[in-house]
Amino acid sequence: MRYVIFAAAAGAVVAAAIYAVSFSGRAPVSAQDFVNLQQGSRLQAGFRRAHAKGFCISGEFQSSGALAAYSSAQVLQSGSYPFIGRISIAGNNPSAPDLKAPVRSLALTILPDSPQQWRTAMNTPPVLAVATPEKFYQQLLAIQNSTVPEFFAAHPEAQNFINWRNSYQPSQSFATERYHSINAFYLINAQGQQQAVRWAALPLTDDVGQITDAEATDALQQEFLSRLQQGPVRFDLQFTLATANDNPADATIPWPDTNPQLIAGTIVIEQASLQDAGACNAINFDPLVLPAGFAPSDDPILRARAAAYAESHRRRAREVLMQQVTGGANE
């Protein structure tokens, strides 16, 4: 009898271990599934699995303090705060042509190396086509299988995204795009009161920019670098406050233009560098690295973004480590 109990208990221990290592957290779609799909069949070792192509920027965020009543975060108190950032295009190819990319991005870490740091990764679309990670995964599959029209037909919530896509005119410069937080967040003030918000970086220049060679793969990068030589590139950081009619957990629905809007400050981009050499390359622009005074909304996509970014970060960090180890051995 005790042999039977022993065998059963030992079997249960082994089964629990196998479950924990292999299956826990997998269903229905895991962070690994997402990143596998994004990286595609041609591995670009050492690069981000999404938004592989980009360059580093730095400068300062000049906070107006207009949001100080809503949040205790240092970055929203009036003052100047340094940032490291990255401007990028969508896709897994680090040498893709700038002008062909459907989505452009601006990511920031304000007050890097501080417990008060705030990371945000903003994209040109103001909304997402679908509201859950599982459906987003299906959307990526549809893009890969060229079945996007069928996917959109089956997902009526994608209409706002489709409307944006049909009206969107890519600009001639990274400096003249609008970049959106997409997901909503909460601001929390010293009294503990919460306010749901979204934010967007709005361009502050009238100079539409000039592409000297539209065939060049780095056309937008070149334009931005030569623009910076004339002086800093500025964006307003505009916060939109949710009203009782808005659902902070659903990134498929735009909030009305009549919602209160406040300018939190100005993003002043002063310098740029190639990403291999730049400080931004080591940073995972995880939108859930938030200081006190900020909190994530219940948007399930927001949580999934953090998990997928972390898996991408792990993979490219491992590849860079291996490159350094084997590179060192060859010298």
């Binding site: 924990a20 290592v21 826990s24 957290g25 997998r26 779609v29 895991s30 962070a31 690994q32 997402f34 990670p133 859930l288 994530p296 219940d298 399930p300 949580r303 999934a304 953090a306 998990a307 997928a308 972390a310 898996e311």
Partner: peptide
Amino acid sequence: LVFAGLTMVKSLGPWQQ
């Protein structure tokens, strides 16, 4: 800790954070 760690690196669930 081990169970939490092994689950949270895979899950996209809302409780992951």
